[in-house]
């Protein structure tokens, strides 16, 4: 028996909106510690890891570990029927082939339940090693989204370079080139507008903008995004999900042939 009640149901809506274009089908893993997901995009180039800790739910009952195979597009369709301020409850029986999403309006005058069929999904679980990063950039998520969107009108790839001067995003295409530099800015008064760069050593890596743009669908979840970089290793683009967890996107850098 599984019953997870999330007062901030809007968070789950935002999580699904940020996943549904990248991943088609995935297993949500429910355990005593939380509600999580790990999945690759269909071309196995990008990986997403989601964690919503059990403490973040108003009520969290998970009698035994359960894996719920869901089509994320269909799950997003159902969650779109919830209002942003609705309380969302996810329910499933151990042997059931369906999951129920219950939506309650904040003043309890409207209660809806949507039942969705579960799927059997063969998914590989990958081990993500703990890594020391050469550079970690924390910046406003909307700024990062704007940069990725703007650069993708000019080129297909972005070179992210971190130096003591700041973080530089560069692209080149048929019509020309573009460079955007964001300098460190602690923004004491408005921490959500800060750009903080922790650098062990300079690093410069090239990534496909198509995937970066897909990751920025998570922008509504958090004011800040963290971009962790190391030479020849996948970048980690992380958005915090309120106080309850995170969504992390991993993308391998392009390699010159």
């Amino acid at each position: 028996m599984l019953e997870l009640r999330l007062v901030q149901g809007g968070l789950l809506k935002k999580v699904l909106e940020s996943l549904k274009d990248l991943v088609n089908d995935a297993n949500f893993d429910c355990s005593a510690s939380g509600f999580s997901l790990q999945a690759m995009d269909s071309s196995h180039v990008a990986l997403v890891a989601l964690l919503l800790r059990s403490e973040g739910f108003e009520h969290y009952r998970c009698d035994r570990n359960l894996s719920l195979g869901m089509n994320l597009n269909n799950m997003a369709k159902m969650l779109k029927c919830a209002a942003n301020d609705d309380i969302v409850t996810i329910k499933a029986d151990d042997a059931s082939d369906s999951v129920t999403f219950m939506f309650e309006s904040p003043n309890q005058d409207k209660i809806a339940d949507f039942e969705m069929k579960l799927m059997d999904i063969d998914s590989e679980h990958l081990g993500i090693p703990e890594a020391e990063f050469q550079a970690i950039v924390r910046m406003p998520s909307a700024e990062f989204a704007r940069i990725c969107k703007d650069l993708s009108t000019i080129g297909d790839t972005v070179v992210i370079s971190v130096t003591k001067e700041g973080v530089k995003f560069s692209t080149r295409g048929d019509i020309g080139t573009a460079n955007i530099v964001c300098r460190q800015n602690p923004s004491i008064d408005k921490p959500e507008e800060a750009t903080i760069i922790e650098m062990e050593e300079p690093v410069s890596l090239t990534f496909a903008l198509r995937y970066m743009n897909s990751f920025t669908k998570a922008t509504p979840l958090a004011n800040q995004v963290t971009i962790s970089l190391s030479a020849d290793l996948p970048v980690v683009v992380e958005y915090r999900v309120a106080e309850m967890g995170y969504i992390r996107f991993y993308l391998a850098p392009k390699i010159e042939e």
Binding site: H44, V45, L47, L126, T157, L233, Y250, I255
Partner: peptide, 14 residues
């Protein structure tokens, strides 16, 4: 030209 490696090249199956 540049090549896009798969993520499985970096993270192994558990």
């Amino acid at each position: 030209g540049s090549k896009q490696p798969m993520i499985t090249r970096f993270f192994g199956k558990v």
